[in-house]
Design a binder for these strands. Structure first.
Lengths: 276, 276
DNA sequence: CTCTCACGTGTATGGCGTATACATCTGGTA
DNA sequence: TACCAGATGTATACGCCATACACGTGAGAG
């Protein structure tokens, strides 16, 4: 059903050979999704918006999964807002990348919507990845850690975007704020005295002015990366190395092994990965 | 279509009033999802597995969305593996919580699968949340930050679980390892010289033995939280406070305002949130 | 013993992705 | 100019999905 091979071919192939229809289909689908969400994107509706029959789409796109892949990569190619701050340094660059990512999700909220299709990276998505790699690489980390850092930040952006968009959607749906909505869920909060910490934190005002999950999380994540960077540059001659799985600093064993793991669990994981 | 009110009522209500069917339905649906994925869970298939007609389910469950809510909360109530390490201290507890979360995703991979339904928290999910709040609260952070930390870690676990399960699924599907799969995508990698950093990192072996995204990311995230904790306890008498949006440390302005923001962007965001 | 009503069934509707067979349009060659 | 092959669009149909609605039916309450 889902054919990654065909998807990559479409994503990377010479797009406008005949200059015509594939792009119009993708664009129409994006407009539909922007207006009504991913759920509204059906082959029927896209075709009808273009004034064609449903099956005509299949002359240009193998199926819906590939269409969604193309939609994703198409919007990934949009230029980030030029006005934003572009300070130098790996942290500022990574931060800007993350912020551009969130802006992309804001422009196209359906990106955060679940779709059964597996994601195949297209040229525009890879270009974004490249940009993030460049930023992370300037931190001076070893290559595998550069990749892991970008994966981490990228995953965080998606997760935070989902949270932010979810609450935004909840507010818009009924016209009431998130706070009021939860306030009305008596049926839920009736039971909350079973949870002492939760209700204590609620009483103490932990929910009154919630921190922005994106801004807060981003700073924590980048702080974590920064700790890793500092840890690595601190002292090159020292007899310590990094766990090859999770990156924790570990003192080299007396035996002088070339690579160490911070725990049995991590060692096992490394072996399991290699066995393939 | 999706009715949160009804969902909460079902999730929190006295479950086995008549002792029988709702639980059997949920359990059958979970078995189906465990075996064949969320996509295989249709009202037909669930009913047929129980030896009833499709419509009989609607006597016990208002619709599919609510069924999925119930499935999620049901598995959220499973006991975490008892053998795991249970060291004290907020960091170890939060780490254990995250690891239990990942284990849950491993037992029920469909949790990470996208489903159009919005998630309504049930009692078991809230119990997990309570546990994480307790751990984070022991770090001595102000309440709003405790909530934000748990949100961050929870979001990370979901994101990392998705990544881990995705690669695991990719390996199983064709029987080849992730590495070989990507190696076979010539049509993709042909174009990769357009991306200098990416190909340099690839050449330098950044992809040869990738770090475990869960283990690596978890340590970074917790390092970030730890930096926040240390920052807060370091010096209470100092004339500094935290940005009310993103948690960055900021020096109090000369004017002695009660609450400060680290940047114009964060101040704007705070106002926008309050306007509701 | 009857009434009632929760529970299960049968049938139908409208939407979906897409397989297959057919029609039409177009451009290159004879 | 005539013709034909391939590209492009169309018509119809199938099987799946969630679910609305009207209808039985059987066990417990009065």
């Amino acid at each position: 059903m889902v054919d990654p091979e065909r998807s990559t071919e479409l994503l990377w192939g010479a797009r406008s050979r005949r200059g015509l229809s594939l792009e119009r289909i993708v664009r129409a689908a994006i407009e539909l999704a922007d207006a009504e969400g991913l759920a509204a994107v059906s082959m029927r509706r896209v075709a009808e918006r273009l004034g064609f029959t449903t099956m005509s789409l299949y002359r240009h796109v193998p199926g819906k999964a590939e269409l969604v892949d193309l939609m994703r990569d198409e919007v990934a190619g949009e230029e980030p807002a030029a006005g934003a701050d572009r300070r130098p340094g790996w942290r500022a660059e990574l931060e800007a990348w993350a912020r551009d990512g969130l802006a992309l999700y804001r422009r196209h909220p359906w990106l955060a919507e679940p779709s059964g299709t597996r994601r195949v990276p297209g040229p525009n998505a890879v270009a974004g990845f490249e940009r993030a790699l460049g930023a992370a690489a300037r931190a001076g980390l070893p290559p595998a850690e550069v990749v892991a850092v970008v994966t981490l930040v990228g995953g965080f952006v998606e997760s935070a975007a989902r949270q932010v968009l979810e609450t935004a959607r909840a507010e818009r749906r009924t016209g009431v704020s998130e706070e009021e909505w939860w306030g009305a869920r008596d049926s839920l909060f009736q039971h909350l005295d079973r949870y002492p910490t939760l209700s204590r934190i609620y009483r103490e005002g932990g929910y009154d002015t919630p921190l922005d999950p994106f801004e807060f999380g981003l700073q924590r994540v980048l702080d974590g990366v920064e700790a890793l960077v500092r840890d690595g540059t601190r002292d090159e001659t020292r007899d310590e190395t990094r766990c090859a799985v999770c990156g924790k600093t570990v003192e080299a064993a007396a035996t002088g092994r070339p690579r160490d793991y911070c725990s049995r669990a991590c060692r096992q994981r490394a072996y399991r990965t290699r066995k393939s």
